[in-house]
Amino acid sequence: MLYSEEIQIFILSLQVAGVGVLVCLPFALFAGWILSRKEFFGKSLFDTFLSLPLVLPPVVTGYALLFLFSDGSILDRWFGIGKMDILFTWIAASLAAGIVSLPIMIRSIEVAFSSVDKNLEFVSRSLGTGYWLTFFKITLPLSRKGIYAGIILAFGRAIGEFGATIVVAGNIPGKTQTLPLAIFTSLQTGDDQSALRYILLSVVLAFFVLIVHRKLINH
């Protein structure tokens, strides 16, 4: 049996990961499109920069976000972000989860775009359809499955986000405590029973994500 506290944590986790991934999606589409379609000076540097969160310890990514969102940072001076009090809210947790899983999403979308036959895009244009309309009528529908696969995989990674989240959002029960943080707390306080239930939930979720992902890329 699940207690209401666990249901709340479960829903918060889905919310944090889902919103984080969706907020980062436009950027991932844009970056994937650039990497698959454009050649420019410094492209490999750009590519490397986007992949950083994949290899950096998430704590470092979290620290970078903390730095950007705190009072007096560049973002604060430009957009007044410090006054929005994003830090230590579920929104901060979302952003952390989204950014840590961004490289996975970008990579999948880049591959999806690259696998679209460029001849088809050219044919569409030579039939009188402009570049962007062709993107929406040909490129996007033909890479749809790969994009979904990227989203779901990134979602799976976002659910498990710990290091960056704890730095920018803390571990506030009922506010920013997601599944991994709840597991950590339960283990710390010796509540093995709850820990086990959270772990089980995580495993089920992971299975679900991987099965959906597999279905998408096999089609």
């Binding site: 244009r125 030579s126 359809t129 062709t134 040909i138 033909l142």
Partner: peptide
């Protein structure tokens, strides 16, 4: 750009749009 050239081009491999049916392909442009 190709979309403004008004030059029809049928390539060797026909390059039909796989996500559209025959009729949608024919009416595409």
């Amino acid at each position: 750009p190709p979309e403004k050239r008004s030059i029809g081009y049928v390539m060797q491999d026909s390059s039909l749009f796989p996500h559209l049916n025959v009729n949608e392909n024919i009416y595409y442009g």
